[in-house]
């Protein structure tokens, strides 16, 4: 694992297994298995394969992420990006060509527990309130309370 300036980089020819935590920016160019936690932005490059649960402020996906993704700020899912897992984020940008299988909860209240969110008003289309409609493809489903 290399560090260029403020960015922690997992190289294109490397395979990392374990837990990674970073302060500013991390970039995955190769393969990663495990768990990623960070205060800054995580970038997953086009040919990168990341089998991990990610918890960061921002995430930019050009490669593949298999696992749940939790972002305090923005998730950017670019055209070549693939996510198989659940996404919880305050903001999300998804480009045409991106692929995504899983539960999605986006909004300023999405990361908060249901009891902390303001009460919902207005009609529902018969859906269970706050419940997840069916299973998810990527591990824990639904808008689960913050662990």
């Amino acid at each position: 694992m290399a560090e260029t300036g403020d960015t922690t980089v997992v190289g294109a020819d490397s395979h990392f297994k374990g837990e990674l935590s970073f302060e500013r920016t991390a970039k995955i160019n190769g393969k990663f298995d495990g768990k990623i936690t960070g205060k800054g932005e995580l970038q997953v490059s086009q040919n990168a394969v990341c089998k991990a649960d990610v918890d960061a402020t921002g995430v930019q996906v050009d490669g593949l992420i298999e696992g749940n993704l939790n972002a305090k700020d923005t998730v950017k899912l670019n055209g070549s990006g693939v996510v198989r897992g659940d996404i919880t984020a305050a903001k999300m940008v998804m480009t045409e060509g991106a692929s995504f299988h899983g539960m999605c909860a986006v909004g300023p209240d999405s990361g908060r527990p249901a009891s902390a969110a303001p009460a919902q008003s207005g009609g529902q289309a018969g859906g269970s309130p706050g419940g997840s409609p069916g299973g998810s493809s990527g591990g824990s489903s639904g808008q689960s309370p913050k662990k």
Partner: peptide
């Protein structure tokens, strides 16, 4: 809000999505 199946999705910054299952192949 709603389980979505589509060949593609373009989501702009600021869009709000209430827990829904997305299937975008």
């Amino acid at each position: 809000h709603g389980d979505l199946t589509a060949p593609g999705v373009v989501m702009h910054k600021g869009a709000k999505v209430k827990a829904s299952r997305f299937a975008v192949p």
